[in-house]
Amino acid sequence: MDELTSFVALGDSFTEGMDDPGPNGTYLGWADRLAGMISTHQPGLRYANFAIRGKMLQEIVDEQIPLAVGLKPQLVTFCGGGNDLLVPGSDPDALAEVYEIAVADLRAAGSEVLIFTGFDPKHTPFLRSLRGKIAIYNSHLWSVAERYHCRVVDLWSMSVLHDRRAWSEDRLHLSPEGHRRVALRAAEVLGFKPEDDWSTPWPPLDNEDWMTQRRHDLKWAREHVVPWIGRQLRGESMGDGLAPKRPELLVFDGLGSAEAGEAAWKSAHRA
């Protein structure tokens, strides 16, 4: 795309950056990494990230979309609805209607919008049953992108993310390397040509026997699935009481560590 001077990221934990540890107890994530990539070539880039873990789509629309519309940034990245789809009985058709209204508002404000589809959960036992619902939602997102001339990062087709090393221990959030690959893919969609390839195969991994896999599955269910179900039953969210990590549209001040900065944009350049 043309010279990029301002960028606002909207969404939930995916865009906040869990579980990609950053400085001072915050997270980096693909959005911060993408801002780091862009700012290397656009030193005056202004960046804000309003995403907060646990947010449902309507909360993102009510709380974050108006802020972005008011700021009128050149680029808005918008990902939402994943937490809704985890809830039994949720309707991907109804969610897509809410999503489309938000995209229309962002486009009317003059912002370019980068949309993210949902991941393919076929390799995650707990989420595999949601595959059809996520696929329906993704189909709607592609249609919205076509109607409003938005670019799309197709997470569903990123088979490199099917490797368990792309995910943190909870299997719901990306690992630092997973976030790095998504940032590279987003940069590519925006018209950059990174020297690093987001689809580079992972190094060989020793296969675990069936019993070891089941022990890991049980440990994961005990430590992550059961607490998640408990929060849902209590009507609680991981993001309750949290504020956005980058609430103002300010000149990007770096990722907070030399190592992360190098990983984010060590070799990418404009096409």
Rank of each mutant, 00 (worst) to 15 (best):
Q74D: 15
N49K: 15
A102H: 09
A109H: 04
S159G: 10
G178D: 00
V144Q: 02
Y148P: 01
R185H: 14
G70C: 12
G70R: 03
L190W: 09
G54R: 05
S159K: 10
S157F: 11
S129N: 13
F119A: 00
A102Y: 15
S139P: 05
D91E: 10
V87W: 07
L161M: 13
N138I: 08
S143A: 14
L190Y: 09
S129E: 10
R181D: 07
G110R: 03
L184M: 04
Q74R: 10
D154A: 00
L130D: 08
L106K: 00
P88N: 12
I115R: 03
R181P: 08
G132T: 14
R171A: 04
I134M: 15
Y137S: 04
E112C: 09
A109L: 12
N49C: 12
A187Q: 06
V61Y: 00
H179G: 05
R151E: 11
L75V: 07
H173L: 08
Y99L: 08
R165H: 09
L141D: 05
E112M: 06
A51Q: 01
F116D: 04
E97Y: 05
G70D: 10
A108F: 00
A94L: 15
V189K: 01
G110A: 01
R131H: 10
A187Y: 12
V152I: 14
V61G: 02
K133G: 07
S168F: 10
F50M: 10
N83E: 06
I65H: 00
A68V: 05
T124V: 15
G132K: 04
I101E: 15
L86P: 06
N138F: 06
Q64Y: 07
D170F: 08
H149P: 00
